[in-house]
């Protein structure tokens, strides 16, 4: 609709639109740019009461380290405080959660999309209610049984819990994606003598990847961004990045090493930047899939 209308738009309106967008972009992007820049300074510069110009030019950084930029915060976080271990744990958790969620979700979502039975509707509605449960309320149900079974604190437990928490969303999204694949495709394969599973394997799997990639991105984000479950279910040695940052926040603040936390935060943000950079189109289409397509 924009092309035909744009030509007739008065200049004043264009200025308002432009100004509004610039304002929003500053609001959305500036905190990140500021923190990335500041993470290469010393604390006296990044947290300066005198003037925020200090964070830009870094006079104390030059004074203390001899150069306008320093990687001390990163060294402190990754090496001194063992952040690398948390990064490894996050990699294991997110990749496992994504792969398992998608395997279960594609099978279930396909069945729901093709069923046509009343109970398929009810499963989707129950999944919607499960999707609404605050994660922390579920966590309070896990702890005692997990202590009893002696499976608290290890990565596999958290992975399975995150997969389960993720299922309602994955089912909904893949269900609506499979609805958009014409039924005739797998049904004609079945007329040719395939069983339902063979039809799924030979006909549906080759065409399902766009939907699976989009859903996978959101499964990844859920596992990556989780704080409520991983902070309660993982022991200190097995922590992933987000609970790790939260747990060393207090101690580094007391020791005057807040820059460790700043560097860790920036380190945890970078993968998300890269994700949006490469998968912007899939993220946008995934967000709208539930709404526009049904």
């Amino acid at each position: 609709m924009s092309s035909s209308v744009a030509a007739k738009r008065p200049l004043s309106l264009n200025l308002i639109i432009g100004g509004f967008i610039v304002l929003w972009l500053i609001l959305a992007a500036f905190p990140f740019i500021w923190t990335v820049w500041g993470s290469f300074k010393v604390q006296a510069d990044f947290f300066s009461r005198q003037s925020w110009w200090n964070a830009i030019f870094g006079p104390y950084t030059v004074q203390q380290t001899g150069a306008p930029f320093t990687g001390d915060g990163y060294y402190g976080a990754w090496v001194t405080r063992d952040f690398w271990r948390a990064v490894g744990n996050t990699a294991i958790v997110t990749v496992s959660v994504t792969v398992i969620s998608l395997t279960l979700g594609t099978l279930g979502g396909y069945a729901l999309a093709r069923s046509g039975q009343r109970y398929a509707f009810w499963i989707l509605i129950i999944a919607l209610v499960f999707r609404a449960m605050p994660h922390i309320t579920l966590v309070s149900g896990y702890l005692l049984p997990f202590f009893q079974l002696n499976i608290w604190g290890v990565l596999p437990t958290s992975i399975i819990v995150l997969v389960a928490i993720n299922q309602p969303f994955t089912l909904w999204m893949l269900h609506s994606f499979f609805l958009s694949i014409p039924k005739d495709l797998d049904e004609s394969a079945m007329v040719d003598g395939c069983s339902r599973f063979e039809a799924f394997r030979r006909v549906i799997i080759p065409v399902m990847w766009p939907g699976v990639v989009t859903t996978g991105l959101f499964s990844f984000l859920l596992a990556y961004n989780d704080f409520a479950t991983t902070s309660m279910l993982l022991s200190a040695d097995n922590q992933t990045m987000v609970p790790k940052i939260s747990s060393f926040l207090g101690s580094v603040q007391e020791a005057g090493n807040v820059m460790y936390a700043v560097a860790a935060v920036v380190s945890a943000t970078v993968p998300l930047f890269i994700l949006v950079l490469f998968f912007q189109r899939q993220i946008v289409s995934g967000l709208t899939a539930g709404a526009v397509k049904g």
Partner: peptide, 12 residues
């Protein structure tokens, strides 16, 4: 840039 505030880990 508009996607960043949503995609970022809430705690971070």
């Amino acid at each position: 840039f508009s996607l960043l505030p949503m995609i970022i880990t809430p705690l971070i």
